[in-house]
Every structure is written in C-alpha cells, then in structure tokens.
Design a binder for these strands. Structure first.
Lengths: 221, 221
DNA sequence: TAGATTGTTAATCGATTAACAATC
DNA sequence: TAGATTGTTAATCGATTAACAATC
C-alpha cells in the first residue's frame, strides 16, 4: 500500500481495547477517569494512553481527566463505528456461519446482505435468516449492490483469487479468515483473523520455558 | 506474569507466519531458500528474518541459505507443534462449535476431549462427534482428566470466572474468544482471538483517510 | 579457491516512558 | 488561588536495518 498510515499499528491495535474498557466503565456508571486510573485498569502507562489519544485530538481536560462517555464516543467515531456497512460473507463453512450468527456483529452497524458458498450442499440453506447463494452469483451481485466489507471465509487455496473478485467488485474492506497473507491494491483495507496462527502462538507460549531450557542446556553442553 | 519471555512479542507473532510460508514452499517442492528470497515472499527484510531465526539457533548454512524442510521442522518444534494437547471447549455457541469443527485443529496435535455449555438447549447435542456436557460437570472433569488447553468461548460476563475455574483445574493454556482481557496466574499462557476488536481495526483502516481529512480541516479552520 | 550467504555486531529508527509547562 | 491532570516535548528503550567478518 502506498497510503502510509498516520498512526502506528501499535496504537491502532490498542484502539478497540480502549473502546472496550470505556464501554465497561460507562456501563459501571463511571463518569470521569484519569489517564493514570485507565492505565492501571488496562495495564498501560498513563503516558502511553495520553500519547495514543493525542494522535487524534485532545479529548481530555487538564485537572479533570477524560469524560468516559465523551471519550468513548470519540473512539467509536475514530474506529468508524458510527457508520453503517453493507457486508457479505463469502464462504458458508463453520467460520462463515459463526460470523453470520455473531450478535455483536449486526449491533454495531454491520449488516449482512448476502452469503455465498461454492458447495451445492450449502447453497440454499438458511443462515441467520439469509439464504446461501452459489458462488457464481458473487460477481453479478457485486455489480448490482454496494458492498463495503466482505468476510472472506474460504479455503486458503482460493482466498487470493476470491479477494481479487471482491476488490474488482468494489469491496473496500476484507475481513480475512483464510490462513493467507493477501496481496491487495492500495486503498483496500484488510484485517486478518488467522486462527491457526493464534493457536500456534498459544502453544509457543506454553512451551517457551522448556524450549529455552533445552536450548540453554545444548549451548552449554 | 513474572516469567519474562526471552523473545519479543513482535518475533513470536511472526513465527506462525514463517511456518505457513515454509509449508507452502515445501509443498511447492522448494528445497532451499535464502533470507533474501524468503524476505521478498513475506515482505520482511532479509536481516529481520536472520535475526528472528537466530533467537532460537543457527538453522542456516553460510553460502547456502536455509533448507526449507529443516527450517520448517525447527519452527514447528519451537511452536510446540510436535507435541500433543488435550483440549476442551468451554461454550458451545457459534464460536465453540466452529472451533470444534475446524479440521486443521485436530490435524496439528490438538485433540478435543470434551465440550461444555451452560445452556440446556445445547447440552446433549453432538458436536463433531462429542456430546456437549453441562457446565456443572466442568470442575469434576478437570479433577479427573489432564487438560492442556481450554478454548474459552463463553460470554464476556462469565469469562474471567470460568477462566479461574480452568486454571484451578490445571489448564496450562487458554485460547480466549471472549472479548475480555483475562487476568491469570503466572505460568498460564493465553492468546486472544478478539473478533470484534479485529473488525473494529478493519473499519478503522477503511476510514482513516477520511478521518484525518476531517481532523486536518478542523485544525486549519 | 571464489562466491554466496549466514550469524552477529553496530547503527538507525520508532515506540514507549519520563518530565514538565500549560491550563482547567 | 492551589491542586490536579492534560498535552507535548525530551529522554530512553527496544526493534529493525545495515554492515561485515566468519564460513560453507
């Protein structure tokens, strides 16, 4: 991508975390919070929180701190959650169906317009009130509908080619569940949910201590 | 956690990516690869690849590069994928069921031993050949079985309390799908799949350009 | 041996933390 | 006004990149 983000990835990854914690605080009736307190809650330094927030503007007030609801709303806005998105799901396997049924999904302004799958066994079934369409219909659907986001939940082998169709069809964002690093044109946003990568990191962490005991022993011996 | 990882998070997050690309290369019949070539494929610098790999040992050979299969096997070992894990799934909702049915899961040495859910509607149903048990049975199951990993796919509201039960029952790793940052004892590994965080990052990226156009305009005006 | 490419040390870059003046 | 806490600049720390000697 040629478009260079103004905000570092480290910060962007923390934004949804801020949003989650602020929602919790709001729900708990907390009206104001200092960067110090929020830091303790989130395991971050007060400094880092102020730096992060000030990438986008000065939403606090000296001597007072941050107004919880106000800051939460600003972050929702920053995250693009005050907009509506037309979403399609490509691949109606386990993951595609789980996403379709994810309640939080529809609540936050993401509305599922259509679901596609290549398998005859899945075409026509009802998922969350939507009939699964055959994959051949994907291109013509994109021609006749505005789709903002596609959930890509197809096998690795056809992920890139499907992504190409989606982008050509005007999709602006891909939520990619295929275990593949997609190559996409500038201006198309992607975010990956690499489940097996995540599981592998878990097993790495479970084994790290023993691993280095082996490595250290070998280096000495 | 008191145990300080010897390897930075940035490196750990890249390990599964190396593993994926090396498997692909192996499948494509590639026998050897240089850090240069691998870097081009993975969009990393050759230097970074050599640094990453050398956290764990010198698996390459001067003048030759890396033997694909050899390096792949070393990384599988590092990731703890040459071990077997007893896994239980806690929460048989959409996500719990999707994970249970995830084929890659069982292939890589993770074998599902039991599934639990609190809902009477789900108890007794067959998921991937396993009958869902009531949540009350969880503690006694942990008492009588060795469980390495628990997939935590319960609502946010009971995620922490369920995690506490799991840890008390001897679980060493939690694959957490609840939108919560768990507080766990040292020595228990966690990795999160925060789906809504991931979706929020996608919508952030889709909107960043327009966001800063607004911000910049406001600062000028 | 000459060429290639690693392993590793040094330099650079960027992110986090600390400090403090501005200000509510 | 005094106290608190932000916004922001400066210092530090860590990760990435560059360079090069070691060696296959």
């Amino acid at each position: 991508m040629t478009y260079k983000s103004r905000v570092s990835d480290a910060v962007v990854r923390r934004l949804p975390m801020y949003y989650r914690h602020l929602r919790e605080l709001e729900k708990a009736g907390v009206v104001r919070i200092s960067s110090q307190e929020l830091g303790e809650k989130m395991n971050l330094t007060a400094s880092q929180i102020r730096q992060d927030i000030n990438c986008f503007g000065g939403f606090g007030q000296q001597g007072y701190g941050y107004h919880v609801t106000n800051l939460k709303e600003h972050i929702a806005e920053i995250l693009g959650l005050r907009q509506h998105y037309h979403v399609i799901i490509v691949g109606a396997g386990n993951i595609g169906r789980a996403v379709a049924n994810y309640p939080r999904f529809s609540k936050e302004g993401f509305s599922i317009q259509a679901i596609f799958d290549i398998s005859a066994a899945l075409v026509g079934i009802d998922v969350h009130g939507i009939l699964v369409q055959p994959m051949e219909k994907l291109e013509s659907w994109l021609d006749t509908h505005d789709v903002d986001i596609a959930v890509l939940a197809v096998p690795a082998s056809c992920a890139q080619s499907t992504a190409d169709i989606l982008v050509k069809g005007g999709v602006r964002g891909i939520w990619n569940f295929a275990p593949v690093d997609l190559a996409l044109a500038e201006g198309v946003a992607v975010n990956n949910v690499h489940l097996s990568d995540s599981l592998n990191i878990l097993s790495y962490r479970m084994n790290e201590k023993a691993l280095f005991e082996r490595i250290d022993a070998q280096r000495k011996g």
